[in-house]
Amino acid sequence: MSAITNSPLTSAVVGDQMTPLARTVTQEQINAYADASGDHNPIHVDPEFARAVGLPGTIAHGFLEMAILTEAVARWAGGYERVGEVSCRFSKPLLPGETVTCTGHVVTVDDSNGTAALELEATSSSGDRVLTNGRATVRLAR
């Protein structure tokens, strides 16, 4: 794992790749997220319930994946305070034990207000695109 604090990003060029972030999400982590967020929907924490509603088992919270995606953007931009916007579509479920990998690249740079926009995606280790249509805006340091 890279250093916890990196220097703020001062410039970006269209096509720049965000440093990818990969994290293996365990059921223990999903349970911790359920407790910390207050979202105890049984599809995330109760395997029997999840199978009864047609899922292969419990699935991670989409918001947990989005939080990891936001962390990836913050690590690349040099801090959470640099992240102005994040959006995504929850396309496929992420299952416990799978690794989610967040990637992205710069699509526009606005020099007048010092921001860069990225397109983002997250894929699971089983090959599913779990988060799609991802977008973020970061504030460049000046």
Binding site: M1, I4, T5, R23, T24, V25, T26, E28, Q29, A32, Y33, D35, A36, S37, G38, D39, F63, L64, M66, A67, I68, T70, E71, A74, R75, G79, Y80, E81, V83, V86
Partner: peptide
């Protein structure tokens, strides 16, 4: 606790800062 849950078994990123997606807790839910 929310930041720790995002990190899982990895080191917590920016532990002194409220993670932006904590908005799920104070704004959305």
């Amino acid at each position: 606790a929310f930041a720790q849950a995002i990190a899982g078994s990895d080191e917590v990123y920016a532990a002194s800062v409220v993670p932006p997606t904590y908005a799920a807790v104070y704004c959305l839910f």
